[in-house]
Design a protein around this nucleic acid. Structure first.
Lengths: 205, 205
DNA sequence: GTCTATAATCAGATAGAC
DNA sequence: GTCTATCTGATTATAGAC
């Protein structure tokens, strides 16, 4: 490749990147709105404004589309976690992460996947970007969890992994949808309610 | 109808009831195992051992099949609630109900529906048996919740409806699946872990 | 890489004989 | 009411021209 070709190639790659971003963004919205099964590849193509066949030039299957959306949300989680002060109270950082998850969910930006779909699970587990992101997030949160337990902030009788899963599960917590559907509470109120029940529990203190 | 016909008709109706029970039982298992979208009507027919067209003589649509399974699980919940001593500690009764939900779920008997599917929602809301059961359960739990709040057992700063939804959400809590998949904990341990995080929260007391 | 057109399949629902 | 056979529509994925 000659030197004069480099910018041209780079520009093309940037265009490609922009288009793929648009695709993943549309997939993210549709996954958050209707879930994996109800989302059709036709819809994705229509939202992006390209032909379905073009989609398949970028992503080999519907499962890979979903995986790309999960990589994206995992990247966002990593970005948020990295933005938190590492020297701060670990419990406060954990609260901040859960609050962030709830806000993304309330904004309708949290993609949800059916946990039982096996071909989807296989695609996700074969996706290194996703698995790396998942492990990175787990490590960061796990360290804070153990620190908070050592400091007597989080219950030490709960396995750290159970606490971690409890946080992850907030991303698909039906309480949020129930409360949102009722229309009785603002997004801020829902956030604080779920945060409170998650950390403080239901029993009076 | 003559007197001699009555037993015959009644027998026929009993046979019909038995068959429909078998259908709903199969639907329940499939919904618990793979969810609504992945469950096919062909599968249901195969499991019951009848032709698909016969299914449609009993239930007019796939949505109605799912609704029948939800009616069944709601009926079971009512039965369990009725089996509890009304004069007992309301908080203990609530714990018992949540424990029951978790055990049904861990046994793979809890049907789950996609909350976003609108035609399914419409079918459910048009089903009087389901709506009556849902309201009955809500009333019974709601009374215990308010009693427990008045007694200073449950946090009084949480709206009762939010607590109720938190209980309902245990029926589709992904933490249970996460912990079950890991294989590190027994069903009893998972039950106690989720019960503890639900009522006592994550923060050390 | 993007498009139009189409294949291939699958699943919900129905027709019509018995 | 039950069956076999079929319809109908939707959906994932691809062929092939440009």
């Amino acid at each position: 490749m000659s030197a004069i070709d480099t910018p041209k190639t780079s520009f093309k790659q940037r265009m490609l990147q922009v288009r793929e971003d648009a695709i993943v963004h549309a997939v993210n919205r549709l996954l958050a709105e209707k879930g994996f099964d109800a989302m059709t590849v036709d819809e994705v193509a229509a939202q992006v404004g390209i032909a379905k066949a073009s989609l398949y030039k970028h992503f080999p299957s519907k499962e890979d589309l979903a995986a790309a959306a999960m990589v994206r949300v995992m990247q966002r989680a990593q970005d948020f976690i990295s933005s938190l002060p590492p020297e701060a109270d670990p419990l406060e950082n954990l609260r901040a992460v859960v609050r962030w998850v709830l806000q993304v969910k309330l904004a309708g930006d949290m993609p949800t996947l059916p946990s039982q779909n096996s071909s989807l699970r296989a695609t996700l587990m074969a996706n290194n970007d996703y698995m790396d992101g998942l492990m990175e997030v787990s490590d960061r949160l796990g360290a804070w969890i153990e620190a908070a337990q050592a400091a007597g902030q989080l219950s030490a009788k709960l396995p750290a992994i159970a606490i971690l899963y409890t946080f992850f599960a907030r991303a698909c917590d039906s309480v949020v949808e129930f409360l949102q559907m009722g229309g009785l509470f603002t997004d801020e109120q829902i956030t604080e309610l779920v945060l409170s029940t998650c950390f403080e529990g239901l029993i009076a203190r």
